[in-house]
Design a binder for these strands. Structure first.
Lengths: 297, 297
DNA sequence: CTGACCCCCAAGCCATACTTATGGCATGGA
DNA sequence: TCCATGCCATAAGTATGGCTTGGGGGTCAG
């Protein structure tokens, strides 16, 4: 097909062969094959070259259109390879979506302005479901110490730093001491507690059991603003991840490091081959870069 | 490219292979090759099939457009092969263009209503020039006896019957006898003559020389209506082809067969391979059919 | 009439592309 | 837990297709 275009462009079979770096019979055979399956001559052989027949002119129009399309396709793909275009769909749990991810998106926009990044907030189980369904390319998730890391065998899991947990108390609480000195969980054994998401609440229970008591979990919400508002009113104490506090810090609560409470681990998940996709790879890199500065800084 | 469409249609490489009647590795290799030259994965391999990446979706759009174009191209060519479409450009000398060719065009239109036939009036030398220049597909020409048949080696010449020449006289002329009895040229040796086109005049001169006299050619025109008008007024006698008289017969002139004057031969000329073009072939056939009925009838 | 430039045809060789065979991986049921 | 059934990839073998070389016909210009 493209050979035929070259024939019509140069006006001769030998000319097309020269342009293509082939020999003349090769082009001649191609043309013959094309005419055979067209069922009609496409060119008239003249002493100094060939001349298109009506059928040849008709085919040429289509061939030109096809060549244009092929060019457009290669241009589109090249743009994606060179990161001048492309879409990355992220699913992140809310506190990362409010802190790490916006920073990573800014970094990525700076590096590759043409990329289109889309974020959906989703707790880890939902994020993985969306990944499985092909609705997102990257899932930013976490696992509390002692819980099984997320993701089935098909997914690649990349550690993305750790997020320490903090004890959050009313300012009026007797244990609301200096913000940098760790506090032992057991000092809050008698308090009312507020739990987070399902897995967070499970982790709180487990941690307290290990510390030797069963917490009195009276409230539950995965909304960290609401959580802090309740705590500010003196209605409970809580264990909140640092990222949540980074996202929204209520000034009416006290925050202290927790003794013997291991941080939650953050992960980025993706399909195994998704890392080969340029846009996904650079988005992943941006996220990991942000995590690195966040951890070291 | 079309393989990729099949993959996306069936949703799996194995499915595409089944649909194409190939084996699974063949399709897999094609896909790999395509991804290699795209520079990015086009599909994600999932446990029960594959899922298109963004680049794959982009390519699919282009592939669909290309497939549509290919389909349109084959449809166009098929229409031409099946004579539902196509153009034939004819060049014919005026008296044939006024008689045989319209009949042939009607016959062709009846057989193949979709064909587009275009006629240009041209004397044989011009018709051949147009054929050489690729401006027409068929040239209807004639040669007088004794003249070299038209056409260089590149052209195919097909005899298309003969066109007898008639002596045309004023009704008042002493030789204007019964229309079916031949008349000897020499009876008109002393008359004033009117010549036709260049080659016709040359033929007239040659014929008269052979008959033993030199005609007094006073007028000249290739317009057979004008010729007959001059003859009707008694200003000259002439030698007109039967086709010209078929086209326009002035009732004010007498027509008699000429003794010892050989008819002119009609030819259809075309490029050697043009006969392979369906529309040209069927047009040629229609012309020859008309010529045949004309000759026998 | 010879050289240059088209084109076609025939035969040979090489590369591409499809096949068979094998293995890994994920899922679903006994 | 183990096997069965999909899916996909890889590797090696083979054969078909396609390009090359070599030779011939034809037209046109010098």
């Amino acid at each position: 097909m493209l050979i035929f275009r070259e024939i019509s462009r140069t006006g001769s079979i030998a000319g097309a062969a020269r342009a293509l770096g082939w020999t003349q019979p090769a082009v001649s055979q191609h043309l013959r094959h094309l005419e055979r399956q067209a069922g009609t001559p496409l060119v008239l052989r003249r002493p100094r070259g060939v001349q298109l027949t009506e059928a040849g002119r008709a085919l040429l129009r289509h061939a030109d259109a096809i060549a244009t399309r092929i060019q457009a396709a290669t241009a589109d793909l090249e743009a994606m390879v060179q990161l001048r275009a492309g879409t990355v769909r992220l699913a992140a749990f809310p506190s990362a979506g409010a802190t790490l991810i916006p920073a990573a998106m800014s970094l990525l926009a700076e590096r590759h302005p043409g990329l289109d990044v889309r974020l959906r907030a989703a707790e880890p189980p939902q994020a993985i479901a969306q990944l499985d369904a092909g609705e997102v390319d990257l899932a930013i998730t976490f696992t509390h110490a002692g819980q099984t890391p997320p993701g089935s065998g098909e997914l690649t899991r990349i550690p993305a730093g750790q997020d320490p947990l903090r004890l959050v108390l009313p300012l009026t609480h007797p244990s609301a001491g200096p913000p940098d000195t760790p506090l032992d969980l057991r000092e809050l054994a008698g308090d009312s507690w507020i739990g987070g998401c399902e897995r967070c609440t499970a982790h709180l229970l487990q941690t307290c059991e290990l510390a030797g008591f069963t917490p009195d979990i009276r409230h539950g919400t995965d909304d960290y603003v609401l959580t802090q508002a309740l705590i500010a009113r003196g209605l409970a104490v809580g264990l909140l991840p640092q990222l949540a506090l980074d996202a929204a810090r209520d000034p009416r609560v006290a925050v202290r490091p927790a003794l013997n409470v291991r941080p939650r681990a953050l992960y980025v998940l993706h399909h195994r081959e998704a890392e080969q996709i340029p846009a996904v790879r650079s988005a992943l890199r941006a996220i990991l870069d942000i995590v690195a500065t966040h951890t070291t800084g």
